[in-house]
Computed example of a mutant assay.
Amino acid sequence: MGSRQVNQAVRRHGGFSMVEMAVTLAVLGILMASAMPSLGDWMANARIRNTAESIHEGVQKARAEAVRRNQSVTFWLVTTADPKVLSDDCTTSSSSGSWVVSITDPTSKCSVAASPTTAPQIVAARAVGSGGEGVSVVATQRDGTAGPTSITFNSFGQVANATPIGVISVNDGAADSTRRKYKVMISSGGRSLVCDEAVTDTTDPRICPAS
């Protein structure tokens, strides 16, 4: 049976000829290639957003626990050799997406299980993990002073330490306008929010307030 007869037979049974299959694959390849840049932006923005929301969740947890326990609780940014694991090689850092909420300094104790008595009395913790790869985190005080690694809340939910984190910038360091740039901002009264630096409309709740 010749190729023409094969194609006719395939058509009669509702299938595709080799030519049609090749054309379909070629078109699919073109569509996938054109979608790759936007897909890359979407994935990068998802990592940035997830990291910002994770950090904000930790800050909120620290404040809520300070009020609930009627004692000071601290949110710490920490870094480890492996960003996927909170291990005992951890140190405090102003440029990491991993965090620990605890009563005392968690340096070298980040793998300790949550406990009300065992130092550092961890309440909650999260490693930035693979979901935060390529994401830049920079913490500053509210006035822009660099270097703070923690923020302590007292039993009233107010900021209690002398040099607290006031702003945490979360982005991927790219100048590309398609990449999101978020901030986690904490007021002196202890309230926190995630805002989008690209938003300029003052009526939009995503806008970043003046720090």
Score class of each variant (00 low, 15 high):
Arg4Ser: 04
Ala9Leu: 07
Arg11Thr: 05
Phe16Ile: 08
Val23Pro: 00
Leu25Ala: 11
Ala26Tyr: 07
Gly29Ile: 05
Ile30Asp: 02
Ser34Cys: 06
Pro37Gln: 01
Leu39Glu: 02
Asp41Met: 11
Asn45Val: 15
Asn45Ser: 11
Ala46Glu: 14
Ala46Cys: 04
Arg47Gln: 13
Asn50Ile: 01
Thr51Leu: 06
Ala64Ile: 05
Glu65Leu: 05
Glu65Arg: 02
Arg68Glu: 07
Arg69His: 00
Ser72Leu: 03
Val73Phe: 14
Val78Phe: 04
Ala81Trp: 08
Asp82Val: 12
Pro83Ser: 13
Pro83Thr: 10
Lys84Ser: 13
Val85Arg: 12
Leu86Arg: 13
Ser87Leu: 04
Ser93His: 12
Ser94Phe: 11
Gly97Trp: 06
Ile103Met: 10
Pro106Ala: 09
Lys109Pro: 00
Val112His: 01
Ala119His: 07
Ala119Asn: 11
Pro120Val: 08
Pro120Tyr: 12
Gln121His: 07
Ile122Asp: 01
Val123Phe: 05
Gly132Phe: 03
Gly132Ile: 06
Gly132Glu: 04
Val135Pro: 00
Ser136Glu: 13
Ala139Thr: 08
Ala146Asn: 14
Gly147Phe: 10
Pro148Thr: 10
Ala160Ser: 15
Ala162Glu: 15
Ile165Gln: 05
Ile165Pro: 15
Ile165Cys: 10
Val167Ser: 08
Val170Asn: 00
Asp172Arg: 04
Asp176Arg: 05
Asp176Pro: 02
Arg179Asp: 10
Val184Trp: 11
Val184His: 05
Met185Asp: 08
Gly190Thr: 13
Arg191Cys: 01
Ser192Phe: 03
Cys195Asp: 08
Cys195Pro: 00
Asp196Ile: 04
Asp196Gly: 09
Glu197Pro: 00
Ala198Phe: 03
Val199Ser: 03
Pro205Asn: 07
